[in-house]
């Protein structure tokens, strides 16, 4: 573990200080715990995904379409990347529901290039939920954030109009490339757009940074091999499955009794 103890201690101290001044209800995750643990606020949302919930209750199925880039896959090990893992986990958690997760890769495309295709794609595939992972290529290309913002807005609107709920997924936390790629403006923009459109944002960046700080993963490592990627994707899938279920506001056990 690298960026571990002290950094998170400092952060917690900072937060605690701020928290003491500000408000009650400061829920920090237990850093000692292991196994993909994450603070609760990263795994939950206030927003309800109505179509997903309806699809679960009435059609007893859940079709999810992931629009991703390279970071939604692990080359040469697709079945261990988070979309595939998400399908497995959701099938476990939602017994009796036909869960189907498919991935559409949009490699080296900015949000502006991907957005126009989303409406037709959703109309054709008819998923109940679209998970749109984006931002990395825009950050690499330093796309103007106004443009980025507009593109995401349009993508969300088009997908919703075509009949799917949307979850946004932001960039990966990538400490080694921070001197080269500045993710902050894109993270901020995605958060703002998500708020504006009442769309849940799955904060991949914060999760990965959290895991890096608690020592769950060493994301600084220069040559970790494929194993690290697989473990990270596994944790992301677990977090994402919890997040999706939370957003339906359905207790999985209800689904069982409904039958």
């Amino acid at each position: 573990m690298r960026a571990g103890g002290f950094a998170s201690l400092g952060r917690m101290l900072g937060l605690a200080l701020l928290g003491a001044l500000a408000a009650p209800g400061l829920a920090m995750a237990d850093p000692a715990a292991t196994g993909c643990d994450a603070p609760a606020y990263l795994l939950s949302t206030d927003i309800t995904l109505g179509r997903v919930a309806a699809s679960l209750k009435t059609d007893r199925k859940l079709d999810i379409l992931v629009i991703g880039s390279r970071s939604s896959s692990i080359s040469s090990a697709e079945s261990t990347a988070y979309p595939a893992r998400l399908q497995t986990l959701l099938r476990d958690k939602l017994p009796g529901i036909a869960v189907n997760v498919s991935l559409e890769m949009r490699v080296k495309r900015t949000a502006g290039e991907v957005a126009p295709g989303l409406g037709p794609l959703v109309a054709e595939r008819k998923p109940a939920l679209l998970i749109w992972q984006t931002g990395t290529y825009d950050a690499i290309r330093s796309i103007d954030t106004d443009e980025f913002r507009t593109a995401i807005s349009q993508g969300i609107d088009a997908s919703q109009k075509a009949g799917a709920d949307v979850i946004l997924m932001n960039l990966q936390y990538s400490p080694r490339t921070e001197t080269m790629i500045n993710p902050a403006p894109y993270l901020d923009t995605m958060r703002a757009v998500a708020q504006e459109h009442d769309v849940p944002l799955f904060d991949r960046f914060a999760l990965m940074r959290h895991w890096n700080e608690t020592g769950e993963f060493d994301l600084f490592s220069p040559s970790p091999g494929i194993d690290l990627a697989m473990r990270v994707h596994n944790c992301l899938a677990r977090a994402l499955s919890a997040f999706v279920i939370d957003a339906t506001k359905i207790n999985p056990s209800e689904l069982r009794t409904l039958r």
């Binding site: 880039s69 970071s71 692990i74 990395t136 990966q172 990538s174 490592s221 220069p222």
Partner: peptide, 8 residues
């Protein structure tokens, strides 16, 4: 060389 960060 980190397979996790091919895109970055």
């Amino acid at each position: 060389q980190n397979p996790l960060y091919t895109e970055e």
